[in-house]
């Protein structure tokens, strides 16, 4: 039943300012890249329809402000997110080190039902800059992803459109899986006391 329903996947992109969140989104959705930098204020989203395993889903990709003073997003913004993309700049050590706190902040804000299994995808961007300027070795990034529960890891260049498609394909897949898991267990957000567990159990059996 649920598979007939049109699925909207909410994907949130987080990371330090200037790592290329907006560029990644623009590259993926619009296939465009602009070299000029403009700080994102608040949040902005683009949608894209994609096929995931022969299912048409709409991805709503939320690009957020990396700069602290532009962050004005409340809890409501994070609610219902299906996947969180953590972006860092491979040429910027600090942007990598803050990934962990971005992840933690997201978990706190979004309060997903099962924080341990919530899908995150890590993207190391700006690999086009060149190996000699690179400060975060792939090995260390992989180790980080490993330690956080085998997060999928991609190295991309929004400028050269390297790996962007592949990364978002995986993002969509994970988001869809999460959406379906949420649907199954039900969003905890219902305001009245309903025995949700039992309800969804019935649904499961009926299928």
């Amino acid at each position: 039943m649920s598979s007939r329903k049109k699925v909207l996947l909410k994907v949130i992109i987080l990371g330090d300012s200037g790592v290329g969140k907006t560029s990644l989104m623009n590259q993926y959705v619009n296939k465009k890249f602009s070299a000029s930098y403009k700080a994102t204020i608040g949040a902005d989203f683009l949608t894209k329809e994609v096929l995931v395993d022969d299912r048409l889903v709409t991805m709503q990709i939320w690009d957020t402000a990396g700069q602290e003073r532009f962050q004005s997003l409340g809890v409501a913004f994070y609610r219902g997110a299906d996947c969180c993309v953590l972006v860092y700049d491979v040429n910027n050590q600090k942007s990598f080190e803050t990934l962990d706190s971005w992840r933690d902040e997201f978990l706190i804000q979004a309060s997903p039902r099962d924080a341990d299994s919530f899908p995150f995808v890590v993207i190391g961007n700006k690999i086009d800059v060149g190996d000699n300027k690179r400060l975060v070795p792939q090995k260390r990034a992989m180790a980080f992803c490993q330690s956080k529960g085998n997060l999928p890891y991609f190295e991309t260049s929004a400028k050269e459109a390297i790996n962007v498609e592949q990364a978002f394909e995986v993002i969509a897949r994970h988001a869809l899986a999460q959406e379906e898991a949420e649907e199954y267990t039900g969003d905890f957000g219902s305001s009245t006391i309903v025995d949700i567990g039992a309800d969804s159990g019935d649904d499961g059996c009926a299928c």
Binding site: D100, S101, R103, D104, E105, L107, I108, S111, R113, D114, A115, D116
Partner: peptide, 20 residues
């Protein structure tokens, strides 16, 4: 918040104690 997490969703305790 910590107590609440302990109560409902203990997997979020980690994120909370790790951030500011």
């Amino acid at each position: 918040l910590l107590r609440s997490y302990m109560f409902t969703n203990s997997s979020l305790v980690g994120p909370l104690v790790r951030v500011e």
